[in-house]
Write a protein that binds this DNA or RNA. Structure first.
Lengths: 256, 256
DNA sequence: CGTTTGATTGACCCCACTCAAACGTGGTGG
DNA sequence: CCACCACGTTTGAGTGGGGTCAATCAAACG
């Protein structure tokens, strides 16, 4: 299971790879772009040198030059409240985009911090916007991406607003698992790149609650926890907890 | 104070008004479009006949033909969880847009319901997308709008994840007040179009908590509540509660 | 090794939820 | 016009889920 870190480290050597060749391209821009369009997009994408853990990719109120695609590593984005505390609004895994918040007024409204050594592609907004004018397929892509962003944030609102701590943790694990699958990595065994503190913050819980529920799920045989390494033993059970299969609720002994 | 309802009722008579003339146009599309561009946009906007209270504008998984601008009345949008309960993700006042969730896969991922008699403009997505190809200023506008959407949802995540019930209520009242101001209506006196139940749902609270806090703020002389009519007496105090002016925290007796 | 940082576990407690009942208001029909 | 009903809202009492505080433990690091 060193897959999540090692292989990306070697890619640092050959960073200058085009979007067309990038194994993440279909993740960044899933549909409808032909080879020619991809080459044009490729020409505007900038490679950035890797970020170290805790480096800022951008800060709130920074002027927004670009949107970013994570190539390797991971990033958290967070907003700050007037009275000082922070809310993590997203974790961004390889192949995922971030920085859409900068579309308004060309200034970022949240802060992005690397959770580990991380490499990103930067797509300059000015060039992207120009390119969209001449490439309808790219523009369509951008619309899709933004619609997806809105939809995902809605799911997060649902989680924060309506779910119990148990459901939040289960939802979180399923989300990571699903996204690992989208990257063609193992869906039942992975290493979380963020500390408990960040998970708790993200889910609107206390660190201790996260810790306790991990332990509880481990005791119930649903997962195996070893520090940040997670193995999902009973994926089905997690889905039942979040209510994904209400129908076949076969009287499993967990929910109160 | 019949301002919030009466004047809109009369506009039903002259619904066929162009975007250029519409007094909400700068709210829908705030910047950078000249008269000619506006005329082109105008030509694709459809007027809809008014929705009655509780009518659905669209439902989750409906195919998304259009985005919508509220002309009069108000709309709530909500998402449903697998286990059945709902989370209201937004209230949409006159001049505000909704339906951006439909950009992904051309299917809506939330449900929009009129809170009262409501009239909307529908902007067909296919036509809007085509128009964006030929009008860079309109495309830029759309990007701004989507960036704003993302930013606002981040603020909601912060609210649901980190704020106490007191802060949530204060934030909610300030939000409505500010948006009333953007419509050039009174910022300190307005009628809420949604029941307590919806406010509670939106804020991740129980109805009783909303009711109690309204009473508490009324007792403290911060607001005056009469059913759904709200008067803000001490706007400054509300801002202090959410922490907007931490500096001049002048030992006001409310916060514990 | 000692130090530091992150994670866990236990004891206690409080904020906000739940349950329950009363209240007011608006709408409806007699 | 009034009596009645239904619904939204308010208010009170009691409780529990998850937070806080504090101590311990484990791993990483110099």
């Amino acid at each position: 299971m060193p897959d999540t870190n090692k292989p990306q480290l070697v890619t640092f050597d050959r960073l200058k790879v085009s979007c067309g060749q990038c194994n993440l391209n279909e993740l960044c821009f899933p549909h409808g772009m032909d080879h020619e369009d991809m080459c044009k997009l490729d020409s505007v994408v900038e490679q950035r040198k890797p970020l170290q853990k805790n480096d800022h990719l951008y800060r709130e109120s920074d002027s927004a030059h670009a949107i970013y695609a994570v190539r390797s590593g991971s990033v958290k984005t967070l907003v700050e409240s007037p009275n000082g505390d922070e809310q993590i609004v997203g974790f961004h895994l390889p192949g995922e985009l971030l920085g859409l918040d900068g579309f308004m007024d060309s200034a970022h409204t949240c802060t992005a911090i690397a959770l580990e050594t991380t490499s990103v592609c930067a797509i300059p907004m000015a060039k992207l916007e120009n390119l969209c004018n001449s490439l309808p397929s790219l523009q369509h892509q951008m619309w899709r991406i933004m619609g997806k962003e809105v939809t995902e944030e809605h799911k997060m609102l649902l989680m924060l607003g309506k779910m119990s701590a148990e459901e939040k943790i289960a939802t979180f694990l399923l989300s990571i698992s699903r996204r690992m699958g989208e990257r063609h990595w193992k869906t039942t065994e992975f290493v979380l790149s963020m500390p408990r503190q960040d998970i708790a913050n993200y889910l609107g819980l206390a660190v201790e609650t996260v810790s306790r529920l991990f332990a509880q799920y481990q005791d119930a045989g649903i997962i195996k926890v070893d520090r940040r390494r997670i193995r999902i033993l009973l994926l089905q059970r997690l889905k039942e907890i979040v209510g994904e299969n209400d129908e076949l609720k076969t009287k499993n002994g967990l929910e109160t």
